[in-house]
Amino acid sequence: MRRIISVLMENEPGALSRVVGLFSQRNYNIDSLTVAPTEDQSLSRLTLTTTGDERRIEQITKHLNKLVDVVKLVDLTEGAHIERELMLIKVKAAGAQRAEVTRTTEIFRGQVVDLTNSVFSIQLTGTSDKLDAFITALGESIVLEVARTGVSGISRGEKVLTL
């Protein structure tokens, strides 16, 4: 099962390498990873997606919690949550293709953020599934380059991940 785990950790050198190292050391997968400081400069928030059965996910959260730099974590997929990923994608767009790409972008509520005579650069946010669907809709033959941020997320309602 796919899980989204959000981790609050000390904003210190080496903290990220400990998290990443844990995954490689114990043979866990990381499908995506995103990290940045929070409103509290002493803390970073790291969000990762991984897959595994319940036992494996339990071990992952336990081992993450054991890392001295990790202050708190939540498995967002355990409850209602909002998941977003940002994608910048560069596609071939010449002649008739330009209208087609523009229409598809509108349908997915993306924005063309840069263009040349033959190329569009498009920005799109959404769930990972939506980004995948957009690439499929455009048709892989016109895709030149994809840059995705990896998933970030937050729980719905009043639940907060904070100290």
Binding site: R55, E58, Q59, K62, H63, N65, K66
Partner: peptide, 11 residues
């Protein structure tokens, strides 16, 4: 004392 030791190999 280590929660990660529990149910690691044997439930």
């Amino acid at each position: 004392i280590d929660p990660a030791s529990i149910s690691k190999t044997v439930s």
